[in-house]
C-alpha cells in the first residue's frame, strides 16, 4: 500500500518511469533478449515501408492494451484472464486493421495476415501478464510503448538492411547510385527471401551481445 500512496507524488517521467521506457530499447529488448514476438519481425521486413507501418500498429495496440488491462486489473478474475486479454487485444487489432484498410490499402494488402497476427504477438501477451496486471495505468502505458518501440527499432533495422541490399531502394526510392550498377554491382536477391531475415536478426543479436557481454547465453 505504501507504493500506492507515494505514486501520485511521483512525477510523470521520474527516473523509475523513464527506465520502463528505455530498458526495452537496449538491455531488455523484447526481441534480442527476451525472444518474444519474432514471427512478424521476420515476415514483413522485406521493405522499410511495411516495417514502419507494422511498428506503428504494434506501438498503438500495445500502449492501449496495457492501459485497458491495467484499468481492469482488479476486476478480471484470474482464471479467465487469458481470454479477457485476447479479447481486448483482438478488438484493438480489428480497429488497426480497419484503419489500415481505409487509409493505406496497398500496404494493408502486403501485410496480409500479419496484421491479424498482432493478436498472438507474444510481446503483447507477455507484457500484459508480466506488467499491466500488477501496475497502474501510466507506468503500464510507458512499459507498453517502451517494449513496442524496442520491437519497432529491430523491425526497422532488419527492414533497412533487407531493402537496401535486396532491392537497392529505401521506402521505394533508389539509394544505390546508378554508377555502381554500371561497374557491375548487383542487388542481392537472397536478401528478399525469407531465410535472410532470420540470418539478419541472428547477426544483430551477435553484434549486440558482443557489445554487452552480460547478455551472453551461458547454457
Amino acid at each position: 500500500m505504501s507504493e500506492n500512496n507515494s505514486m501520485p507524488k511521483e512525477s510523470l517521467l521520474s527516473p523509475r518511469n523513464k527506465k520502463l521506457l528505455t530498458d526495452p530499447l537496449g538491455k531488455d529488448n523484447p526481441i534480442n533478449v527476451q525472444v518474444l514476438g519474432i514471427c512478424s519481425v521476420l515476415a514483413i521486413t522485406v521493405q522499410l515501408r511495411t516495417s514502419l507501418v507494422m511498428a506503428i500498429s504494434v506501438v498503438a495496440v500495445m500502449g492501449f492494451a496495457n492501459v485497458i488491462i491495467s484499468l481492469l486489473r482488479s476486476t478480471i478474475p484470474p482464471r479467465i484472464r487469458i481470454i479477457v486479454q485476447l479479447t481486448v487485444i483482438a478488438s484493438l487489432v480489428i480497429l488497426v486493421d480497419q484503419i489500415l484498410k481505409a487509409f493505406v490499402y496497398d500496404i494493408s494488402r502486403q501485410l496480409s495476415v500479419f496484421v491479424g497476427l498482432i493478436i498472438t504477438n507474444c510481446i503483447i501477451m507477455g507484457r500484459l501478464e508480466a506488467f499491466a496486471l500488477n501496475n497502474k495505468p501510466w507506468p503500464s502505458f510507458l512499459d507498453g510503448i517502451g517494449n513496442a518501440a524496442g520491437y519497432g527499432w529491430v523491425l526497422l533495422a532488419v527492414g533497412f538492411f533487407r531493402e537496401v541490399f535486396g532491392s537497392g531502394t529505401l521506402m521505394g526510392y533508389a539509394v544505390i547510385p546508378q554508377f555502381l550498377y554500371d561497374i557491375g554491382y548487383e542487388d542481392n536477391g537472397l536478401m528478399i527471401l525469407p531465410p535472410m531475415a532470420l540470418i539478419t536478426v541472428g547477426i544483430i543479436i551477435w553484434v549486440q551481445r558482443y557489445k554487452d557481454r552480460r547478455l551472453i547465453d551461458i547454457s
Binding site: N32, V35, P195, M196, A197, L198, I199, V201, G202, I203, I205, W206, V207, R209, Y210, R213, I216, D217, I218, S219
Partner: peptide, 16 residues
C-alpha cells in the same frame, strides 16, 4: 563464438 551462443546461432541455423 560466445556472443552467438544460444539464440544467435539458432536464428542462423534456422535461416540455413
Amino acid at each position: 563464438p560466445a556472443p552467438l551462443r544460444g539464440l544467435g546461432i539458432t536464428f542462423i541455423i534456422t535461416g540455413l
